[in-house]
Amino acid sequence: MTAFSAIHEEHESDKEDFTPGVEPQPTWCPGCGDFAVLKALKGAMPELGRSPEEVMLVTGIGCSGKLSSYFESYGYHSIHGRALPIARASKLANPGLEVVAAGGDGDGYGIGANHFMHTARENHDMTYIVFNNEIFGLTKGQTSPTSPKGHKSKTQPSGSAKDPVRPLTLSLASGASYIARTAATNPRQAQQIIAEAIEHDGFAHIDFLTQCPTWNKDAKEYVPYTDVQEEYDFDKTDRREAADMMYEAETKLYEGEVLTGRFFREENRPSYGQEKRSTGEMPEDPLAERYYDDDDGFERVADHLIERHK
């Protein structure tokens, strides 16, 4: 008997299972790229045989953060920039859960960038989707960390003097073990990449290009796109070649060319959970289960720690 039967059962589910039955309807603007992320995620989950109650979806704050409202699962709509530390603790507490974190480019590459770097470094077995619309959507169109140099907004009236963040390169340098970029305009690839990322045993980062027609007027619709697996010859398991390919894709984006696909994959690197178990710093069985198992006797301080104080 397990206390978490949603986790251990085989499931047959379909897209509709991941759609909230009564409310709410997504309030994203018509034409918003965020719809594509929701659709791809809903498509990928049944493909992998997951059920809503074994999924823990943690989101940040932004238009993107609303994902957890429109996706049926255990959800945690947290605070701006902090989805990753909440999500990774959830994975540590119960490794049986399918943990997905998501948020905007401001959320993940700006205010939460420190967590992005460290969660990637630790290589938690989870998926992180960044809705990259190159803008602060929810707060009405301010320049974001991925806005192109020269981008004008109400808070950068003369145009941004900053070079944008290179999210793929940052991810590689930080230690993510699966890195991909896809676009709202490419739903088939998006769903495949999300499914792959979830299957990957380590930190999988997807930079998801999501157009914001409302605030990013000069934003491209992210068409036409090129799949790097088809048009470029590089080995995504080779760090140096991956780095070059990322650099090219990041640069080209600001020249109007959208390069998507799988950029990096490290197969044999143990996940953080595996590393921690191998050093004896994490229990073999899911920690959360201990609390719901009546036979689990908890250790007593009196039996182990008081002798040394006498």
Binding site: A3, F4, E53, G75, Y76, N94, G96, L97
Partner: peptide, 11 residues
């Protein structure tokens, strides 16, 4: 999370 019949949104 992980319990059947318990899904909700924390926000």
């Amino acid at each position: 999370p992980g319990q059947e019949g318990g899904r909700f949104l924390a926000t």
